[in-house]
Amino acid sequence: MADYIHPDVLVSTDWVAEHQNDPGVRIVESDEDVLLYDVGHIESAVKVDWQTDLQDQLVRDYIDKEKFENLMSEKGISNDTTVVFYGDRNNWWACYAFWVFKLFGHENCLMMNGGRQKWIDEDRPLVKDVPEYPVTSYTVSEVNESIRAFKDDVMAHLGSGNPLIDVRSPGEYTGELLHMEAYPQEGALRGGHIPGAANVPWATAANEDGTFKSADELVSIYKDDKGLKDGDDVIAYCRIGERSSHTWFVLTYLLGFENVRNYDGSWTEWGNMVRAPIEKP
């Protein structure tokens, strides 16, 4: 049986229970619902919200370097802290936060396999008290945009023959749905997919309990079925870049692809853009 290429990036709920108070470790909860953490969270965990903390509130972009530095020092995270992410919805938002932390060059990022639901299913305790940590000094030396694709990068990618992975549901990919079922606020004016993109819904990579599928299963899905080859330059997208950060995580850390970018503009940009090429089966 094959193993993940970077298995060390995943930790178990057991590991978190044991190490959550280690001085060099900070647990970060990132959920879709901004209040879910406040209902109850892992005792030592701090909250990082994908929208109010990580996104710029005016321009469609992430916060800048200074704001990220301030956020880190408020949360008691230093440059050498090992940050362990977990969250709701099979770690979608945890993967999104993980990706944003990598964008700002944070070195030691880990993911709690199975996320919030697994922790709860195992009857582990949740608390409401928000922990406080001493303010740290944090420096972003370089923003790592090699993991982020912009629309022009995607345009350039189109003609190059390199793979694009559309991680939305089949209905969104074929253009029958203009938005993800039950998420009408993230719609687009046009339906379909970026020409040449292969459809691999993100959840294909997850087990029922929210943990990641085995290395053998992932190889079979992405390499055997969809033809990804070692060394490929891959761009993944969805509608706003959150489901595709889950796939970015799988391809980068579990399958070991070294050139994977997340197109965070995704379908809410592409499907609204004048003259953007679209393919419909």
Binding site: V34, Q51, T52, Q55, Q57, P184, Q185, E186, I240
Partner: peptide, 10 residues
Amino acid sequence: QKLGTRRMFG
């Protein structure tokens, strides 16, 4: 303003 516009449609 406080929670972000993406959450408001629902």
